[in-house]
Amino acid sequence: MKASIGRKFFMSLTGLFLIVFLFVHLTLNLFLTFDDSGVLFNEAAHFMATNPIIKIMEPVLALGFVIHIIWSGWITLENMKARPKGYQAGDNLLKWYAPAKNMFILGGMVLIFLIIHLFNFYVKMRFTGDPLLNQPGPGLEDGVHNSYALVANLFIHYPVYDIIYIIGGILVGLHISHGFWSAFQTIGLNNSNWMKRLKFLAHLVAFIIGAGFAYIPLYFLIKF
């Protein structure tokens, strides 16, 4: 029992840490829509790629994702063993729009979206490279990749990815809508007054992050 509580506590901390990262990542990505020349986004992406603090945080972030996924899977398996018959029909019926009952499923779908995202952008920007990264553009100095060209090309010429990323943003928002307040509840802020505030804040945070990530591909899909 104590081990289970410890895993939930640690999973909650990693979840809150990842939400902070999502805010930072969303802020960076919104530069894509502020300046169609790509100058702002390229400068921000270059800063994130070369800043020594960010380089140190990247493996910590990766570890946070891994721990969060492993712990959530472990806890889900424990819950399944504790309730082998599953949920009954009616009020307890599993529904896609009930994040509290489907955190593991939502998390799995978010993981698939994350893998697609990493393959499309992060791997190319950091490891394999791509011809678009060397495409000439305004304001580009030596050593600065045209990250905007890589991202814009995908969203402009491949509408299927726009749809995938819009759905991905919605899934992330749904996952956070429950995970945010649940994390604070696990930490100990679980009295009725705090719960009302945290649930409101959870829905606000979930909407901002979910709508923000969904807005970016929608912007390219509509404008271009």
Rank of each mutant, 00 (worst) to 15 (best):
T27I: 11
N92S: 14
G173K: 13
I208Q: 00
G173A: 14
N92T: 15
Y215C: 02
N29D: 05
V205C: 10
I75V: 12
G169T: 11
K85T: 03
A183C: 15
V60R: 04
L118G: 02
S147Y: 08
R83W: 13
T27R: 10
N134L: 06
F41C: 05
P159L: 08
Y219F: 01
N42F: 10
T50M: 11
F21A: 12
G179T: 00
V24D: 07
V39M: 03
A152I: 03
H157K: 00
M1Q: 06
P217Q: 04
L218K: 06
Q185N: 08
I70H: 00
V151D: 07
D130E: 02
G173F: 14
K2I: 15
I176C: 08
L13N: 09
F207H: 07
F113C: 14
L22P: 08
H117Y: 15
A152L: 01
Y158I: 13
L204A: 02
M48C: 13
I167L: 10
I170P: 02
S12Y: 07
P59E: 08
F155M: 06
H117C: 12
L77K: 12
I116N: 08
K2D: 05
N191Y: 04
F65V: 15
N42H: 07
I105V: 13
M48N: 05
F184K: 01
I208R: 01
V172G: 03
R126W: 04
S147P: 08
L18V: 00
G210M: 04
P136G: 00
L132M: 03
F41A: 05
A62H: 09
P138E: 09
H175P: 07
L28E: 10
L154W: 12
I69H: 11
G64F: 03
V123T: 10
I67V: 05
V123W: 03
L218T: 15
F31Y: 15
I53G: 04
T33F: 00
G139S: 09
N102I: 04
V144C: 14
I163M: 11
V24R: 14
V172C: 06
S182G: 14
L28K: 11
V39E: 00
K95L: 15
E58R: 12
P59A: 07
A89T: 14
H145A: 07
M103E: 11
L198S: 03
L111G: 05
G139M: 01
Y158R: 06
I167W: 03
I209D: 10
K2W: 12
G169N: 01
L189K: 08
F9E: 04
F17L: 03
N102Y: 09
A44M: 15
F34Y: 12
S192I: 00
L171G: 05
Q135L: 14
Y97T: 01
L198K: 09
T128G: 11
F220Q: 05
F47V: 10
L32D: 07
N190Y: 09
D162H: 05
F127W: 05
S147T: 08
I156C: 07
Q135H: 07
F184G: 01
N134S: 15
F113E: 03
S4I: 10
I116T: 00
N79G: 15
G137K: 09
I166S: 11
P52W: 06
V160N: 06
A214T: 07
I170G: 13
L201K: 09
H25A: 08
P138C: 04
H46M: 11
A45H: 06
V66P: 06
K199Y: 07
H68L: 11
L61E: 10
H145P: 02
K95W: 13
I176L: 05
M109F: 12
D130L: 12
I53Y: 14
V24P: 01
